[in-house]
Simulated scan of single mutants.
Amino acid sequence: MRIKTVQAWWVRIPIEAARQHRSDFGVVSTFDAAILRIETDDGLVGWGEGKNAAGSTGGYGALVHMLNHEVGPELIGRDPADIAVIWEMLYNDSRHESAARAGHAMPRLARRGLTVAAISAVDIALWDILGKSLDQPVWRLIGGRKADRLPAYASGGWAPADQIGDQLKSYIDKGGFSAVKMRVGAMDGAAHISATRVRAAREALGPDVELMVDAHGTYTVAEAKRFIHLVADQNLAWFEEPVIADDKAGMAEVRASGPIPVAAGESEATRFAFRDLAVLKAADIFQPDPAFCGGITEAMRIASLASAFNLRFAPHLWAGAPCFFAGLHLCAASPASFTIEFSLGANPMIHDLIEETVEARDGMIAIPEKPGLGFTISERFLEAHAQHG
């Protein structure tokens, strides 16, 4: 079995006005991603996803060009089952043979950003192919699954203080969730405004629903510490991305300043960055995004790091179907996983891009049973929303 074709598209799906929301990213009017198709010479097709922009917004022209014209040609003729070998080849670039002989990484200078986003898309697609070639779901190939359903949390929460309770309760009504996440930070301005929204949310939800908050890295260290002080009695499950990912020492200071667990990692790429988070004691919960951190292969390594440091693993899954399903398999196999992110904002890149129905029932999400990642792309829908030229 050899790789025959590699094709990526910038897929942009409009979000109807009634379902758009405003955050620190502005008004989200489209859902964008780089979607990758890899086909083997015996007709197997694997699907991957790469991300290089915040949330579901931004431009994907550069990443798609890289996949089609730089990365893709390097893959033609290779055995798609050599997943980790291909990962290291793409990461180390022209020095990959030297790195393999020496037994340590010699990465290309552009070793983050677009490089790892492209590797992520390839890696997810290769795992999809491997599962299909062996007629097994990916979770079985990466260690098995610890349950056929796993707990999920509803991810959303942009409403102002007088509406946030109703918004979060509507999530619970939709999927039976017992955990919800809301956004705070720059979208509110001052920390005390976010704190007021959190207090309103907790009052509406009561004491038994888990409540997480996500600042998208928009606070300074001082503001994040002030926010923690203001909401220390609200029993928050975690405080996500309190400060920018580039300030790991500052994140460690925030973590040490109060009783709320810190979650981080959606802006981090590769095991090396998560090693630093662990060593600096900057996070309690690792949140790698499979479409950005390096794919399933690298997310497994990151999950192992979490386990080794007695931390927890909850990947960032505000994403399209290939990334989301990759996260389901990773959570099924990782001993450090405990919850799955399920976006309650408009997400046509999951719900409309594939033939299957993705839903939460009683706050749980089923782990796929089908071979590979376990979904069927609607190629007609993909073609209708692929950007050309």
Rank of each mutant, 00 (worst) to 15 (best):
K248C: 04
K248G: 00
K248D: 08
K248E: 15
A249Q: 13
M251E: 14
A252Q: 08
A252G: 07
A252S: 14
E253C: 00
V254H: 08
V254T: 08
V254P: 10
R255F: 10
R255K: 13
G258Q: 11
P259A: 11
I260P: 14
I260Q: 14
A263N: 12
A264P: 13
A264K: 10
G265R: 05
G265W: 07
E266I: 15
E266S: 12
E266K: 13
S267Q: 15
A269H: 08
A269S: 15
A269Y: 02
A269V: 13
T270N: 02
R271L: 08
R271M: 10
F272L: 14
A273H: 09
A273T: 02
A273S: 14
F274L: 02
F274V: 01
F274S: 01
R275K: 15
R275N: 09
R275Q: 15
D276S: 11
L277W: 13
A278V: 08
V279K: 11
V279T: 12
L280M: 14
L280E: 11
K281N: 13
A282M: 01
A283G: 07
A283E: 04
D284G: 03
D284F: 02
D284H: 15
I285T: 07
I285D: 07
I285Q: 07
F286P: 00
F286V: 00
F286G: 01
F286C: 01
Q287Y: 05
Q287R: 13
P288E: 09
P288Q: 09
P288F: 12
P288D: 07
D289G: 05
A291N: 10
F292A: 08
F292W: 14
C293F: 03
C293I: 02
G294W: 05
G294C: 04
G294Q: 03
G295Q: 04
I296V: 12
I296C: 12
I296P: 12
T297K: 08
T297M: 06
E298G: 03
E298Y: 03
R301D: 00
R301N: 06
R301H: 14
R301I: 01
R301G: 00
I302G: 02
I302C: 03
I302S: 03
A303L: 11
A303T: 10
A303W: 10
A303N: 10
S304D: 14
L305D: 04
L305T: 04
L305A: 05
A306Y: 03
A306G: 10
S307Y: 09
S307H: 13
S307D: 11
S307R: 10
A308Y: 00
F309A: 13
F309H: 15
N310M: 05
N310W: 06
N310G: 00
N310H: 14
N310I: 00
N310Q: 11
L311D: 00
L311T: 01
L311S: 05
L311Y: 00
F313H: 06
F313K: 06
A314V: 14
P315D: 03
P315F: 04
P315K: 03
H316Q: 04
H316N: 06
H316R: 03
H316K: 04
L317A: 06
L317Y: 07
L317Q: 06
W318Q: 10
W318E: 07
A319S: 14
A319Q: 12
A319G: 04
